[in-house]
Every structure is written in C-alpha cells, then in structure tokens.
Amino acid sequence: MHRGKGMKFVGDSRVPAERKPNIPKDYSEYPGKTEAFWPNFLLREWMVGAVFLIGFLVLTVAHPAPLERIADPTDSGYIPLPDWYFLFLYQLLKYEFAAGQYTVVGAVLMPGVAFGALLLVPWLDSGKERRPLKRPIASGLMMLGVASIIFLTWESVDEHDWEAAAQQGEIVDDVEVDETAEGYEIYQSQESCIGCHGGDMLGGAAGPNIFESDYDKDAVMDIIINGADGMPADQFEGSDEELETLAEFIANDGQDPNGDDE
C-alpha cells in the first residue's frame, strides 16, 4: 500500500482520491500453466453448469416430488424408511453385531470412527505423496469405505418392499363410513374382521382398507367366504343374511345400500 504524506482522500473518507491504474496482476511467476478465472475459466464452468441445470429441470418436471398422506403417529403398521443417503446407516443397524445390545456399535461407534477418520484425513495420511496409487493404505481404506456404503445402501434397497411402501403411504380419499348402517353393525360384531381391518374398516394391523378395492357384492362375499391372498377363509361368524347385508354395505363404499344418498 502506498503510504506517506501528501495522500489525498475522497471527502473526509478513507478512500484514496487518486485512482491507481487498473492493470491486471502478473501471474506469470505462479507454478504451472494458468489461465484467467474471468472470463475464460468461468465460461467453461458455467457451460457445464448450464447443461447440468437442463438435466436437473428435466428431472424435476419428469418426476414430481413425492408426497404421502398426512402423518398419522397412531399408524403403527407403517414401515419407515429414511432418505436414501441415510440408508447405509439404517441398514447397518439391522446386522447382529450392530443391533440389539450392540446398537451403540452400529449407531455411534462405527459411523463415529468412520466420519472422525474422514475429518482427520490430512493428519492420518500426512505423507507428501499425492498420487493415489503411491499411497495404497489411504486409497485402500477409502475404497473400502465407499464400497461398504454402496453395499449397505444396495442391501437396504434390495430388502425393502417398495410396493408395500408405495401403498402404505398413499393419499387415500376420505371414506365416510355410514355408522348407522346395518352393515356397519354387523361388521362391529365380527372380532376377526376388526382384528385385521381395524375398527373403522379403514385398514389395521394386518389387513388393508376395506374400501380401497372396488368389488361388487358377489366378489366381496366370495372373498369373505373363501379368503384372498393373505386373508384366511371362513372367518365370518354370522348368518348368511348378515353376510349378504355386510357385503352389500362394503360394495356400496360404506354407505347403507337401502338408505337415500341425501
């Protein structure tokens, strides 16, 4: 910086009044071949960015962000899944050596050691050599870490039941079950129905929402008598008439088939 007497300033500020000539700095003594950041380098960088942006926008338009139904803390049947970048950690906690009484190992110890090591890499690998092949231990450990993250994520994705996951979070239209209907009363008297499909008929511990699928009366009766996949047969304990009323009620989307629709 220029110092000394006789310096002039803008008003009473500290900004020097004399403009210095705007000459680019001299970089010729810097190590290696160089080029200007602005505009040469930035142009290439931004062109890559522009292509990236186009791809990104295409992705967002083609695949809207998913939104499941509103959180219902009482739904204990929901199988949770973290976002994909936490899957490896989530998967780790499934293995015996990292679960149960050893949860501390999987939840704290292993990630702690891994990320701690990552943080301290410059001191763990303090040699001068930069080429990855010339420092096999550091490179090897990193490869191992990356491979295990990929493996754990893969295993987690593979084990997860994606179809069930897509179904369990679906936004369902509110079904207003007519609780005064005869069919509803019959349903309430059937312990085995409630056991799986829940007291509100909207799905429970083992069975789905009854009104989710569209069957007509005969198909519903057939399912109740003969069962369906995952649903045992002959669970209904009532008269044939009651069975018929219930089936009609279910086929009519939870409204009393004899009642007026307002």
């Binding site: 200007a36 602005w38 505009p39 040469n40 930035l42 142009l43 931004w46 062109m47 960015g49 522009a50 942006l53 186009i54 926008l57």
Partner: peptide, 19 residues
C-alpha cells in the same frame, strides 16, 4: 476477452433464468 465475457454473461443469464 470481450467475446468471452459476453458469452459468459449469456450463459450466466440462461442459468439464472432457468433457475
């Protein structure tokens, strides 16, 4: 240099607009 600067602002403008 000028040409590059123009192109640069063009690409930058495109990115800003797209975003």
């Amino acid at each position: 240099r000028q040409f590059l600067t123009y192109t640069l602002t063009g690409v930058g403008g495109f990115m800003a607009a797209g975003m």
